[in-house]
Design a protein around this nucleic acid. Structure first.
Length: 462
RNA sequence: GCACGGGUGGCAGAGCAGCUAUGCAAUGGACUGCAGAUCCAUGGACCCGGGUGCAAAUCCCGGCCCGUGCUCCA
């Protein structure tokens, strides 16, 4: 089996070969914590959580770094309006991020560097770029000069310098007053009065948006690393800017072996975004769907494709997720094996995941196993594939506790239900359907669902 | 406008050259007083027009349509 990964830069799936055999260095652009996490964040970090898990399942040692952009214009806007320090806003949303991601079984990365803890390295990197002539000091900050490395333009998006100039029209003119060329981008922004700032050779200020990722990856991984991930929208300008910064700083290229970009979450066919006002936070979604059901939904489309989110889509996923947990619970409680041959499912699952992490195809195999008979072998299979690899299962303790609780709840009403059912059977025997249905309605009103079968009625709690 | 990606059954959504995708829904049957659940079965799709193949959702060319990027964004 060969793991193949789609690389945005070469626009093809390539066998994964890493700098050091058996080891993967992976950097994923993290959030700017100025608001609670939304479903777009969930999709991204879920996607890379699966990458993380599958790389480990495939025997790689993974060093996973994900940053927090904890100082930024939007954070400052909010901290100003609330009259609190920027760190209050950032920390609040970082805590929230971890809470919702934990709930969705997202494994922790190895490092979560923050911009404000990487200032020294950022200043060093900017200094090097200035020294090498790739950056200049403008009136309001330090800028990277695109024309010093024009050959690096468009590696991820295919755009040329001329296209960007023509296409962006007048809109870019207003950004960055100290730029020589509108395509240049800020490495260091000088502070305006009252803004939080750090001392630098160019005056007090803070880092531009792009430089942090270059500085952090250099700090943690060195001049080259294997996988760089992020949302599709980050390809330009953010990731192309990183290529400029990192490669011009170290002189080593390419800085990244495989660029991976996840597709968007859409609502009614349009990108979900704050500016369109059509976004849902992760927490909102938890109101109606279990965290792992949401995970199920977001993994049921391959990570590169857009997901068009609808209530039906989420309900569908919830149905499947419930079935998965039910099958897992039944298999945990089962004596003996199912007798089904699960080898084919394992093979197809592995082939699917090896093909650029095709979670959709892999989950079809999970659905197949879910539909098979209960047994300890099924429980083991589900733990390995649906659980460890896809992160879709609650712990066995949790599932067993859930079953025990359900038994308890059932026991509490059992006596009364059995009495009513006995009366109903009497009514049915004498063909008194009105009375029988009346009793069924009564049971239904206290949350008991009655189902008649060949061996008499069975019941369960709604 | 330019760049990148996509257009598959009622819906969601895989497949990306030859073999039933799958799920939900639908239809028929079994079971049933009815309902529900379950089981079995069935139908139904590849945006349009060319081209290359023995063979094309699948590759190539040309349209049309949609999304994203070109400005902060996962």
């Amino acid at each position: 089996m060969t793991l193949r990964v789609y690389d945005t830069r070469s626009r093809e799936k390539r066998k994964l070969t890493t700098l050091d055999d058996g080891k993967v260095r992976m950097y994923v652009c993290g959030i700017t914590p100025y608001s609670p996490s939304h479903l777009g964040h969930a999709r991204c970090y879920l996607a890379f959580d699966v990458v993380h898990r599958w790389l480990e399942a495939s025997g790689f040692e993974v060093d996973y770094v994900q940053n927090f952009t904890d100082i930024d214009d939007k954070i400052l806007d909010i901290s100003d309006s609330e009259g609190v320090d920027y760190s209050v806003v950032a920390n609040r949303n970082i805590d929230e991020y971890f809470e919702v991601m934990d709930a969705m079984n997202v494994l922790r990365a190895d490092h979560y560097p923050r911009v404000t803890e990487t200032i020294t390295e950022i200043i060093e990197m900017v200094s090097t770029l200035v020294d090498k002539g790739h950056a200049y000091v403008g009136g309001d900050g330090v800028y990277f000069e695109i024309d010093t490395a024009p050959e690096k333009y468009g590696q991820l998006t295919g755009q040329t310098l001329e296209m960007v100039r023509a296409g962006a029209g007048g809109r870019v003119e207003k950004t960055g007053s100290g730029k020589r060329d509108h395509r240049d981008f800020a490495l260091w922004k000088l502070a305006k009065p009252g803004e939080p700032s750090w001392e630098s050779p160019w005056g007090a200020g803070r880092p531009g948006w792009h430089i942090e990722c270059s500085a952090m990856s250099l700090k943690h991984f060195g001049e080259h690393f294997d996988i760089h991930g992020g949302g599709h929208d980050l390809r330009f300008p953010h990731h192309e800017a990183e290529i400029f910064q990192s490669e011009c700083c170290t002189g080593r290229e390419p800085v990244v072996g495989y660029w991976m970009h996840n597709g968007f979450v859409n609502v009614d066919g349009e990108k979900m975004s704050k500016s369109l006002g059509n976004f849902w936070t992760v927490r909102d979604t938890f109101e109606h769907h279990a965290p792992l059901a949401l995970r199920y939904a977001l993994l049921s489309v391959p990570y590169r494709n857009p997901i068009d989110l609808t209530p039906e889509f989420l309900e569908d996923a919830t149905t499947h997720y419930d079935r998965l947990v039910e099958a897992y619970g039944a298999s945990l409680s089962a004596d003996g094996e199912s007798g089904d041959d699960l080898a084919g499912a394992s093979e197809r699952f592995t082939a699917a995941m090896d093909d650029d992490f095709n979670t959709r195809a892999a989950m079809i195999e999970v659905q197949g196993v879910v539909a098979s008979a209960a047994g300890s072998d099924v429980a083991n299979w589900l733990e390995q594939y649906a659980g460890d690899a896809l992160g879709l299962l609650p712990s066995s303790d949790e599932v067993m506790a859930g079953l025990a609780q359900a038994d308890l709840a059932r026991a509490e009403v059992a006596e009364r239900v059995e009495a009513l059912l006995a009366e109903r059977e009497g009514a049915r025997d004498s063909s008194d359907w009105a009375r029988a249905d009346e009793i069924r309605d009564e049971l239904s009103s206290i949350g008991v669902i009655v189902e008649d079968g060949p061996d008499g009625p069975t019941w369960h709690l709604a």
